[in-house]
Design a protein around this nucleic acid. Structure first.
Lengths: 141, 141
DNA sequence: TTAAATGCAAACTATTTGCACGTAA
DNA sequence: TTACGTGCAAATAGTTTGCATTTAA
């Protein structure tokens, strides 16, 4: 799923997952596809209702829950006590700015040099993800 | 700090950080040092009060806050909506069981082939941590 | 037409805070 | 002795739930 998806492409993807297409759900998913900053529910709600009120908080939660169930969206749990959401469900890593908290995606190949097979006799590893901390461009001054 | 620390060793470490040693704080830190399962506040509270009630939930929170400030303890944010705590403040990685949620420490050298220098022109990386998901021994059947 | 989604408000959970009282140093 | 910690209860923040109403298909 590309960020430049047209409304029809978005609808098709949702339909393909068997989702009923309501204005609220569409708005939430389209919003997540358009941005790359891993927003919180609060931020999605604000953005989606910016021009005219269209969705309640409960509907945003419910849209995110079902989008997560069909694997179009995933949770990102990094810092704070807030859940962030991401429409990029392909494997990738995260960079978190320790100053402003911004999150950036890192390409999967960035950290792909090791082998889960030989991790341990007791633990059966299936996947991994790297979280890098540091300063983003804006906070480097 | 080793897991087998004696009461006096624990007191010395705390004193060295300028902490006043109260029964509650001591109990919380000693408890965290003794176990390796990254407990939640609820679990610490339960364990600390197992024999006789010694600490309130608020005191456990406050002890953890100050232990975190002096870097004797750190938060681990992995899944769920709960914060877990860890008295191992040396760099290491985590393994999370997708079935039972148990967390195990992975030695730092397990994933040490990453070069942060060449990460990106815009992002100034300072540290990283790997989270591995899979099945722990108990859940492999 | 109707099963499913919305929106509101109330409920719940994890955590924080305010304040009177107690205690480590 | 006294600055600091504790414990309770109330406050907050994020999220979930129940239910009457609305709506996509």
């Amino acid at each position: 799923m590309l960020k430049s998806s047209s409304a029809n492409e978005i609808r098709d993807v949702m339909k393909h997952e068997g989702l009923r297409i309501t204005p609220q759900r569409f708005a939430v998913y389209a919003n997540l596809l358009r941005r790359d900053d891993h927003p919180t529910v609060e931020q999605i709600l604000e953005d989606v209702n910016a021009e005219l009120p269209i969705a309640s908080k409960a509907s945003v939660y419910s849209a995110l829950t079902i989008l997560r169930e069909v694997n179009l969206v995933r949770e990102v749990l990094l810092d704070e006590g807030v859940t962030r959401y991401d429409a990029n469900v392909n494997p990738h890593h995260h960079f978190v700015c320790r100053d402003c908290g911004a999150i950036h995606d890192l390409a999967w190949q960035t950290f792909s040099c090791f082998n889960l097979e030989e991790l341990s006799d007791d633990l059966q590893a299936e996947s991994y993800e790297v979280t890098v901390k540091g300063l983003c461009k804006t906070c480097q001054d």
